[in-house]
């Protein structure tokens, strides 16, 4: 094994283990957040308090696509999307802070808000 190859192997190994550990750490963090932001194109469109929000669906239009965001029973998820891959719909319910629901075509992000003060 030559030196550059060893360096490449060490780098790849570190990235693999590091990202794995980081992922696990995020997974096991206690999840009590209830304040959710719906962000499009860098702007917060809606802030939803899952603890008090009534069940409803919000249709959000974008330049090329659209999304139907649904709040039901204290959970939020992407119910429908106007794109062919439907990845955001398959992601299911928003659960983790480190895994926001993202719709790339519509530049839409559903995520837990950074500050969790419920007013």
């Amino acid at each position: 094994m030559n030196k550059p190859l060893a360096a490449i192997a060490a780098f790849a190994g570190l990235v693999f283990l590091g990202s794995g550990a980081w992922m696990l750490a995020g997974h096991f963090r206690a999840q009590d957040a209830v304040l959710v932001e719906i962000v499009q194109d860098g702007k917060v469109l809606y802030t939803v308090d899952l603890a008090s929000e009534e069940d409803r669906s919000i249709r959000i239009e974008g330049a090329d696509s659209w999304n139907l965001v649904t709040v039901r029973g204290g959970e939020i998820f992407m119910e429908e999307a106007g794109c062919p891959d439907q990845t955001c719909v398959k992601m299911g319910v928003l659960r983790a802070e480190n895994l926001p629901i993202v719709c790339l075509p519509n530049k839409l992000v559903i995520r837990f808000a950074d500050s969790q003060e419920v007013s």
Partner: peptide
């Protein structure tokens, strides 16, 4: 997407990417 939120995807993407 003009947002830094996506950064939180880095670990998942890198891990599965490897």
């Amino acid at each position: 997407m003009k947002t830094a939120v996506i950064v939180s995807y880095i670990p998942v993407l890198l891990f599965t990417g490897c």
